[in-house]
Design a protein around this nucleic acid. Structure first.
Lengths: 332, 332
DNA sequence: TCCCTCACTGCATGCGTTTGCACGAGACTG
DNA sequence: CAGTCTCGTGCAAACGCATGCAGTGAGGGA
């Protein structure tokens, strides 16, 4: 194994007959270099295969050009989509994404965030994890901008990008009611999540406006097995709902499978089903899930804008909840 | 915005009344420190909220503890699963994952890999992207171990982790034949991929052994829209196959949707369908996709083992293809 | 008591960059 | 022709840490 010594700016400098500074300036956009030396340097650099060491640069400038992303799970197809979008958007801006998986538990997140900060990330995106406000403080203390994605902190002006979940819940209720259903149930996600609270609040609001109450309620924790159990509890009885709002699409798939395959119920004839998110597979004919669509692209670009502004030093005020829309397919 | 100065090892040293070296040693497992100073340092450190700067450490030691991962797409559910597993496994070993999205095109990959190397990653995982052997050389030249995931290079001893795709293809053929089908088609993935070539080769082998030929063939490029078009071309005709092997599950879902929803064909009665991968949603009752299972966990742990050994300096020989198994559900 | 050993500690150097500062050389101006 | 600007360049000092080396002291054996 021929140990290929790493080629540094000094090597390039020597070959081009200039100083290290000159080399550095050539690779620093907007620095003052004559075209003559610039071309000499570029030539030497490519001959030697030189590329600036991002880490070394990061030490001096304090800007690592890396963004930490904490995400709780990837099995819900919403998040891979988001990750892809996020990564592409950030790459376009010269940043890269360091990914961390975190369990739900707050102390795990605590630990994970500490680890991220060790990498001197320029910013932090917390997708779908709950952040103690204590932790939020610690991040701010390290001077690292944080933005929450698809989750908000009830506290003060924390930067958080969310859809209008309340309105979404309301739309779901109104739609089910417009279908003439009146025994309407709800399968909730994880109750620690702001998304869940807001969606349910809006949903209840919608029911109440129509003079209805909740017919049944179970908790699925945003997890597939739990959601299926919830569905069994809710529907394996004669006195079952004729419609259900499931707090996200991922769980809705499980619920639908239980309804059709296990319980032999017809969707939507026996029970109307509506989800939340509009993940790609919701549109697949096998499900054809009616759902409340979150605009992932808008969420991502809002997130990136906010984060980059903060990094740039601009104090940015919390973005407004993004609009959601009802996507009507066949399940409701 | 109170600019909180970054707390360095010197701050801790001063507060604990020791030298920077002492502090450093406390945070370096296996270094020689007395318990007395160690505890003083730890106390000072936690009081100040000190954590070693990974980037600075990386400069000295040459080990950044970061692994670059380039992945082509995340819409195929196989990859999010892998990403999650990979990230968890590496975190367990003290590494973290820097993610890069790459298009199919080789020159894009080229560019992406250059960017990754700028970050001084300790290792590189190329998932589902094709690597020119030229590029492989360049990586080796920078001394960064590379392992290909779910793709192999026909060339020499490149480190590549793959399933026994050939055997998988064979299993698929044998299964369809055992069902009594004899007009058997194939919807291929991207033909530039070794997985595609191997799966098809095995499949053809299986057919040939039974004295059969391929009844029809279309290309889906591992992309959903293409796969659906392929399915339409193949099946929207009276003279259609009675069974089809689709090169991965993701495309198989699309194919199935076309068969059932667009063409009104019954699966498996009219046409038997078998996929490849066994992504989680293949098991969902709405699809119940019969498929050849790749053992994602084994693939990941093999990948991590190989990569970490290489990083550790152990010359490791290319791992053998991992076993696949037929998972029989309802579509075939 | 003396010397050797050993566990610990501090000093100083270096990792590969960026960047403020000073300096030389032209290019202009009056 | 002297003075002022400007542009381009090199020097050297950081950035935050790890680590070889030398030095300290305590403990132990003879």
């Amino acid at each position: 194994m021929t140990t290929t010594r790493k080629v540094t700016s000094l090597d390039v400098a020597k070959r081009a007959g200039v100083s290290r500074s000159a080399v550095s300036r050539v690779f620093t956009p907007g620095a003052s270099v004559s075209e003559r030396t610039a071309s000499k340097v570029r030539e030497a650099a490519s001959a030697l295969g030189y590329r600036p060491n991002v880490l070394a640069r990061a030490m001096l400038t304090g800007k690592s050009k890396i963004i930490g992303l904490v995400v709780a799970y990837l099995d819900n197809h919403f998040y891979p989509t988001v990750l892809e979008l996020l990564s592409e958007a950030l790459e376009r801006e010269g940043y890269h994404v360091l990914v961390f998986m975190a369990a739900h538990s707050t102390d795990d997140v605590e630990d994970v965030v500490s680890q991220i900060l060790d990498y001197q990330v320029d910013g932090l995106i917390l997708a779908s994890v709950s952040l103690s406000s204590d932790l939020a403080d610690r991040c701010r203390a390290s001077g690292v901008p944080v933005v929450l994605f698809n989750r908000k902190l009830e506290a003060e002006g924390e930067l958080a990008v969310v859809s209008d979940n309340r309105m979404g819940g309301r739309l779901a209720a109104e739609h089910l009611i417009s279908l003439g259903r009146n025994r309407i149930g709800h399968i909730a996600g994880w109750e620690g999540a702001s998304t869940q609270r807001d969606r349910e609040a809006g949903f209840m609001e919608g029911l109440r406006t129509a003079g209805l109450g909740l017919f049944a309620r179970e908790v699925g924790d945003y997890r597939l097995p739990r959601a299926k159990e919830a569905a069994r509890r809710m529907f394996d009885t004669p006195d079952r709902p004729d419609a259900v709002f499931v707090a996200n699409d991922y769980m809705a798939f499980g619920v639908m499978d239980v309804l059709r395959s296990e319980l032999g119920l017809r969707v939507p004839e026996d029970v109307a089903l509506i989800g939340f998110d509009d993940v790609p597979s919701a549109a697949w004919p096998a499900y054809g899930l009616t759902t409340v669509k979150q605009d992932a692209e808008a969420m991502v670009s809002t997130t990136v804008d906010a984060l980059l502004s903060e990094i740039g030093g601009t104090e940015v005020l919390p973005p407004a909840p993004l609009p959601v829309t009802l996507v009507r397919r066949i399940t409701a």
